[in-house]
Design a protein around this nucleic acid. Structure first.
Lengths: 130, 130
DNA sequence: TGTTATTTGTTATATTATTACACACTGTTA
DNA sequence: TAACAGTGTGTAATAATATAACAAATAACA
């Protein structure tokens, strides 16, 4: 069997919700919102989220246990992510800076080790909150 | 009242344990290990961890919900952290690269926004696992 | 000594995430 | 076409991670 080409029903329902949201959503908030669509159990949501993260449609904000849709339409795989997080209003923005991603993708540590993936989270105050 | 100068008993117990460990520890594994020393409840551990993270003695590996002692003895505040994580053996190393930290500390986004703190996690395979 | 902030201990509970198992769907291949 | 492999689904139960709320103890210091 080939790798899945299209999203399944559950994955599409979850993705639609996350894409509509202007801010990151928590898993159980997603669950609450999709219960009318038939996803009754946490696992149904987590499975959809896992897949969507794997194929790069959404990202997980690790420090917040929350999920956002990937804004970068060409993003097929989630292997280089960077976010800015306002510590007051919790506004979260995906950073797309080619110089930053180039710097980090090329980064080698002391032992010359190169990494296949990274996640970066910046914290500070957004414009409004300053 | 002045900012706390020395660690409290609970904080010291938790720090000692985390410093002795060669790998990151989970909160409930810490709890299990310090129960003989009188810390019986999760909250006692979490409170100590919060404080230790705040003063930079330990860092949290967000993607793993685990805690490591800071290897950098001069690290007083935890505001710029970077780790490498092996996705096979889960070995985690704190990266101390002055060029990396300079690059990230100086990083400004499109709007010219500068951040006060960041956390970076690299994923890949360590030497042994390749 | 009285005041204030911080820390502690305790119980209960909230939040986040996974295990386990039976079954269904889809395409491959023997 | 029947067996199978891989993936996805539904469900219940439970594990793992983290916080709320409150009363009491402790430390700093005017």
């Amino acid at each position: 069997m080939q790798k899945q080409q299209y999203l399944t029903k559950n994955q599409q329902i979850v993705l639609d919700l996350v894409e509509k949201s202007t801010q990151p959503l928590k898993a159980y908030s997603i669950l609450f919102n999709v219960q009318k669509k038939g996803l009754k159990a946490p696992l149904q949501v987590y499975r959809a989220l896992d897949k969507l993260v794997e194929i790069g449609k959404i990202h997980k904000i690790e420090s917040r246990n929350a999920f956002v849709a990937c804004k970068n339409s060409s993003c097929q795989v989630s292997k280089a992510t960077a976010f800015s997080i306002c510590e007051v209003c919790e506004k979260i923005t995906e950073i797309s800076s080619s110089s930053l991603s180039k710097y980090l993708t090329d980064f080698k540590d002391k032992d010359g080790m190169k990494y296949s993936k990274y996640n970066l989270e910046f914290f500070g105050l957004c414009k409004k909150c300053r």
